[in-house]
Every structure is written in C-alpha cells, then in structure tokens.
Amino acid sequence: MPHSPDPAVLHGMPLFKALEREALADVVRHAQTRLIPKGTRIFSQGDEALAGHALIDGQVKIVQTGPDGQQVVLHFLGAGEMFGTLAMFMGGKYPAEALAVTDCVEIHWSVPTMMALMERHPRIALNALSILGRRFGEVQKRLREISTERVERRIAHALLRLVRQAGRRVETGVEIDFPLSRQDLAEMTGTTLHTVSRTLSAWEGQGIVASTRQHVVITEPHRLVAIAEDLPAPKQKD
C-alpha cells in the first residue's frame, strides 16, 4: 500500500506552482511513492510514457542516446525536481532514459491520474504549458545560434576558396584579386544578401576583413581561418 507523502515535498516544483492548498493535497493524495536503489534504470528511452515523476531524495541523471549510439547526459537532477513528466505530451514516449545515481525516493503519477488532475485543477495544465513554452524558447534560441554559426562558416569558407584561387598578398593583408560583390558571395553560399552584408559588417567591425563594394581584403587571415575551421578555443598554457 503506497503511502502519501507530505504535500510540502511539492514545494518549488514548477508544475504545481501557485496551486491552492486543497489542490496540492489532491495532487499528493494521488501520487505513488517508491524507493529506488542506486543504479536502477527508472525508465528507458523510447519506453511508453506511463507516468510523470518527481524526485524527493537522491540524484538522477537523464541520458539521451543519439542514432549514432553517442550518449549525452542532458540533466543531473536533485531533490524537488521533476522528470519525464512532459513525455505524455511529446508523442507518449520517454525521449531519454533516467538512471538513479544514488538511492532515490521518487513520487509519480500515472498518465490517467495526471490528466484527471489537470482537468480538476487547470492551473497544473497552465503550468505545464509555461514549462513547455520556456523549453521551446530555449530550443529556438539554440537553433538560431546553430544556423547563424553555420552561415558564418560557409561565408568564411567561400572567402578562403577565393583566396586559394585568386589571393594576392597586399600591404594590409590578403586581397581577393577580382571584383566580388556581396550578392556574389550570397549566391556562392546559398544565403541572402542581407546575411552576407550583416556578417561582413560584423567582421569589418572586428578588423577581420575590409571590403568595398567590389573588393574584399582579408586583414586578419588567421581569424577568418579560425571561423571557417571552427577551431577550438586556445588553451591557456605557461
């Protein structure tokens, strides 16, 4: 017979934020508690999402395995944190596995229980939306960063290819010795004139290139190579 934990354990969990005392008691009443020995796999990636989980004590790591078999630790969770809770809204499968790093105490709610709680207490559903919204925002931000990085690298590579073809050493750096417009660069890199202009202006600001309407001089060749090759940050030594 599972016992109901103290409602205080829900304190600080974003899913139950701003819930009335009555509602919190209802949530706790429907939770199941269990002890999980260290090393247990609480759920596996791809398993049907049967429940939402919250950690009361101990540590859990969330690990995702990519198609190439590479494993990435997404989160380390401690007491008071929830996990696997949104999987029921994400295709009904756990997107990663959860491993008990220490002996743990968790509470969980089956999917039908959680749905019923959300219907009785719409605040929980609104909280879930706000958590999802925040995560979505993070994903969008990361996606934008990745696509910006990629286009910068493409432009840097295009300039380096042109240098190989038509580079000429001049006083201020290495000049691409034929007329090259920003539109040409946009077409070479499959991007827009706007993006090329913005990127070149940023590089001009940093002193990496100097360009006129039809001419480009690379004033800091090594830094352009570092962008193109995505070289790792220098290690501090000596």
Binding site: V225, A226, E229, P232, K235
Partner: peptide, 9 residues
Amino acid sequence: LPPLSHGQP
C-alpha cells in the same frame, strides 16, 4: 592534437 584557435587579438 588538433590545431588550436589562432589570430585572437
């Protein structure tokens, strides 16, 4: 080891 970044001001 792989090349290091360079050209930092």
